[in-house]
Design a protein around this nucleic acid. Structure first.
Length: 230
DNA sequence: GCGACAG
DNA sequence: ATCTTGTCGC
C-alpha cells in the first residue's frame, strides 16, 4: 500500500468513527484515567501511559505503560494513527477499567470531528474528553483572564469545543468532547481536575510517567502500581 | 497557489 | 513530540 492510499483509508475510518461519537452524557466518574505518550529521540518508538486517579481526591490508584514501535508518522489530523495504539495497549493493562478517559489531544475539535480522544473513546466505548494545548481547527475568541472562564471554539457554524482558562492569566487549554459526554461536563471535569497548573492533573501524571519509562527501562515498568510511581 | 497544522 | 540554560518572579 502506498502513502496516499493509506491516508484515504485513514480518512474513511475517521468518518466512520465520527458517526459513532455520542455528544451527550453526564458521567460522574469515581475513577478516571489520564492517557499520554512520549517518544524516543528519533521518533521511532512510542511509550504509552495510562494512569488511574480517584475522583475527586485525584490520588493515583494505578497505572500501566507500554513501549512499542511507532508505525505511523505524525501528520496533523492523523495523530491517532500514531499514538492511539500505544494508549490502547496501556489502557488494556490497567487492573480495572476507568469510568472516563482524559486524553492529550482533541476530540471532535478536528477537521473530520474525529481527533484521538474520539477515536479512543469510540473504540473502547468509554466516555472520553480531549484536552489540547493548541487549536488544530476552528477558531475562538480568547476567554476572560479569570480562572474557569471559557469561550466557544467554532467551525462551520457549530461549536466543536471550548477554550478553558485553567489558571488565571495563563494561556487556555482547548477542551472538546471525545465520546459519550457533553461539552459542559467535559469542561467541568477538566476544570475540577486542574490543580493550579495549566494542564489537568491526570494528563500531568500520565505525561511524567510516559517520559519516565522512556528514559528508563520500559521492561521494568510494564506493570506499575501507585507505590512504583516516581 | 498560500498558509495552517493536536503531539 | 524532542533538544536545551539560565532566568525572572511569586
Amino acid at each position: 500500500m502506498e502513502g496516499a492510499e493509506i491516508l484515504q483509508n485513514a480518512v474513511r475510518l475517521q468518518h466512520d468513527i465520527a458517526r459513532h461519537v455520542v455528544t451527550r452524557g453526564n458521567p460522574d466518574p469515581s475513577v478516571l484515567a489520564g492517557l499520554d505518550a512520549a517518544y524516543s529521540l528519533d521518533g521511532s518508538q512510542v511509550f504509552g501511559a495510562a494512569v488511574l486517579l480517584a475522583v475527586p481526591s485525584l490520588r493515583v490508584i494505578g497505572a500501566a505503560t507500554v513501549g512499542r514501535k511507532a508505525s505511523f508518522p505524525y501528520i496533523p489530523g492523523y495523530f491517532a494513527f500514531r499514538e492511539a495504539p500505544a494508549l490502547l495497549a496501556a489502557l488494556g493493562r490497567l487492573e480495572r477499567a476507568p469510568d472516563l478517559l482524559m486524553i492529550d489531544g482533541h476530540g471532535i475539535a478536528h477537521p473530520r470531528r474525529c481527533g484521538i480522544a474520539s477515536h479512543v473513546g469510540v473504540i473502547t466505548g468509554i466516555p472520553s474528553i480531549g484536552v489540547a494545548r493548541h487549536l488544530l481547527t476552528g477558531r475562538c475568541d480568547p476567554p476572560g483572564m479569570g480562572w474557569g472562564e471559557t469561550t466557544p471554539v467554532t467551525a462551520d457554524g457549530s461549536v466543536i469545543g471550548c477554550a478553558l482558562r485553567t489558571v488565571a492569566g495563563v494561556r487556555p487549554v482547548y477542551v472538546s468532547i471525545g465520546h459519550r459526554i457533553s461539552l459542559q461536563n467535559a469542561v467541568s471535569i477538566t476544570l475540577h481536575t486542574s490543580t493550579g497548573f495549566r494542564i489537568p492533573e491526570p494528563l500531568r501524571v500520565a505525561h511524567r510517567l510516559a517520559s519516565h519509562v522512556r528514559d528508563r527501562d520500559v521492561r521494568a515498568f510494564i506493570w506499575l502500581d501507585a507505590d512504583a510511581l516516581p
